[in-house]
Amino acid sequence: MRSTVLIVDDHPSFRATARMLLELEGYEVVGEAPDGETAFTLVDELRPDVVLLDVNLPGLDGFQVASRLSAKDRGPAVVLVSSRQASDYGPLVGTSGARGFIAKADLSRAALEEVLAA
């Protein structure tokens, strides 16, 4: 069965490109959310396997959203993405509860699988 993905990012252009790329590479993108609050609703509704979560979001930031999603019972695997580097955020990625981090420009099936396998 194909893995299901929810994309959370406030830039529509990134959501569109990421959806194209992930679908091309064999994922099923079940939804998109522009912010944390919408993401919580859609996670409960759609039960995705993976949440691709942007760090810079309006309102709650990606780290806060990641903490709440990871605390859920049988919650999704959260993967943080950003146009910045993971090192820009220091220890925050490690303590957020997310499974890992991918720079947006490096997004690919291989990168995603590597993070999820870790």
Binding site: F14, T17, L21, L24, S83, R84, K104
Partner: peptide, 21 residues
């Protein structure tokens, strides 16, 4: 961050897609 960087990210992803296609 919101402007040029986002566009370059999208550009990179679009090039990946184009290569695959």
């Amino acid at each position: 961050h919101d402007g040029a960087q986002q566009r370059l990210v999208a550009l990179s992803l679009q090039l990946s897609l184009a290569r695959a296609a």
